[in-house]
Amino acid sequence: MNIFRLGGDLAHLLAIIILLLKIWTTRSCAGISGKSQILFALTFTARYLDLFTNFVSVYNSVMKVVYLAAAYATLYLMYVKFKATYDHNHDTFRLEFLILPAAGLALIINHEFSIIEVMWTFSIYLEAVAILPQLFMVSKTGEAESITSHYLFALGSYRALYIVNWVYRYYSEGFYDMIATLAGVVQTVLYCDFFYLYITKVLKGKKLQLPA
């Protein structure tokens, strides 16, 4: 565990907490894509199938449980408790366009053709594009609340920090995982446009509004 990996995990945790707190305190999930949240729940479920078969550390197991619980709690808040505030008219991205290619690619390009390995690979590919429905929603409405922007910034920073972690691990341990790294780069690139808007607008106290 290095500082970049820890920073990535904490940024991820922060993003999840920001989202849950936003929904809970405002009693509303307006502006949040339920489609992206479904994809994140699916991602964690497919990736952490090894929760009971592969013990790494207490830290690892606790984080896995927290990510899974938070993902399903978010879905519960969006689709059950505060369903009336869910902005489904603007959340029109077709999930099969992301799930099917991710599943197909996982079957073809993986480290080993076993159920647990293919599911892990599927989760890596799916996570890379899981934010697209949310970004699509922001582009459709042309704006995002500040709190939603903070959520997206923390979530985007997480994989960016993981990339630094992978570079560090390559030089310090000779460890590398091409699938995770390439997917992580794709994932981070998808946030670049948002990062630019966040830094030039939100950090200067303005609302995130897309140029007309």
């Binding site: 990510y67 993981y162 460890f175 590398y176 091409m178 699938i179």
Partner: peptide, 10 residues
């Protein structure tokens, strides 16, 4: 290409 098993990242 993976050098370590099992997976230790999240």
């Amino acid at each position: 290409s993976r050098k370590t098993l099992p997976k230790d990242e999240l």
